[in-house]
Amino acid sequence: MRHLILASLMGATALPALAEEVNIYSHRQPELLKPLTDAFTEKTGITVNTAFVEKGMVERLQAEGDRSPADLIMTVDVARLGEVKDAGVTQPVTDEALDVVPATLRDADGQWFGLTTRARIVYASKDRVADGELTSYEDLADPKWKGRICTRPFTHDYNVALTAAFLAHHGPDETREWLEGVKANLAKKPEGNDRAQVKSIWAGECDISLGNTYYMGKMLEDEEQKEWADSVRILFPVFENGGTHVNVSGVAMTKAAPNKEAAQKLIDFLVSDEAQKIYAETNYEFPVSDHVERSEIVQSWGEFTADSTPLTEISDLRPQALTLIEEVNFDG
């Protein structure tokens, strides 16, 4: 019997170790992450499983609790990153590799980190908007734009974050006045997404719209939408005494994280030069790392100075910004 037990133990030690894996809950479609996860798996042998969770991310993680299979949350917009932190479903991460992420693009407590940035810019008609006609976010409320602006709903996360940034610069009274001014300049009721607004410019329904930079790259990839993209140019407005508003795609480690060590390896990879270059080339986003250049097409859109307001401050101001948007009935 003793020999049988010994042989059994020796056989057990000879068995291959269980394959490592990382499980991601993502607000982004898995195909957007696939070039990155494939490169990580090829480099490390660690399998990455991605579940697209469009809605109810926080509620799902809270319901799963310590039994959650999710190791990482990957999402867009500081609002959603702040939401998962405030819900208590994340844990702090400290690692030297993350030093490449600027302080303004990470949570002060290490609960989330920006991986890429995108600017909230203005798409302007090449035919109907002159050079230098719009230079600031404040200009959007100027009556000269009456009947000329299109936008997706301002209650959407991207516009709430922009409003929160405006609030950080100007305070509630001026922000309310600005919202009323922009609303008065709308060509039609807010609807659709950022690309739909560019289509409206192409169709002659308005002259300018708000949008994220990377949508230009996505439209140029699409045979139908390329015509829309070719009808506009990108303007980088700034806040008075500030820069251009930027937001992030980011990552956070869940509180449960059953594969914590492998998840940490993936986070470190995502801020590496290799992954940052993949982000730049495939998703038309700006790398957070200063070591990596923007893609050629992104560079063609021009240079800008990012606003220095920390995203944590913008996240904290979101509830107040949303209240102001609803009080002026912007989308009504």
Rank of each mutant, 00 (worst) to 15 (best):
D207C: 14
D38H: 03
V238D: 12
V248C: 11
T41E: 13
E177V: 03
A97M: 09
M1Q: 08
P190T: 11
L266V: 08
E191K: 12
T41N: 14
G332A: 12
V53D: 07
A19P: 02
Y279E: 04
Q62M: 15
K43W: 01
T13R: 13
T47D: 12
E42L: 05
D38N: 15
A124R: 01
Y279Q: 10
E240W: 13
M1K: 06
L4T: 13
G302A: 08
R148W: 04
T151R: 04
Y284V: 01
D290R: 09
K55T: 12
L324Q: 01
V160I: 09
T37N: 02
K265G: 08
P35W: 08
H170V: 10
R67M: 09
T155W: 06
G243Y: 10
V100N: 05
K126Y: 01
D273T: 15
R106F: 04
T41P: 04
P172C: 08
E96C: 02
V271M: 03
L270F: 08
V48W: 10
L115E: 02
Y158M: 13
P258Q: 15
Q276S: 06
R80Y: 13
N283Q: 11
H156Q: 12
L15F: 11
T282I: 04
K255Y: 07
E64L: 08
S200Q: 11
G56W: 04
P287N: 05
P143V: 08
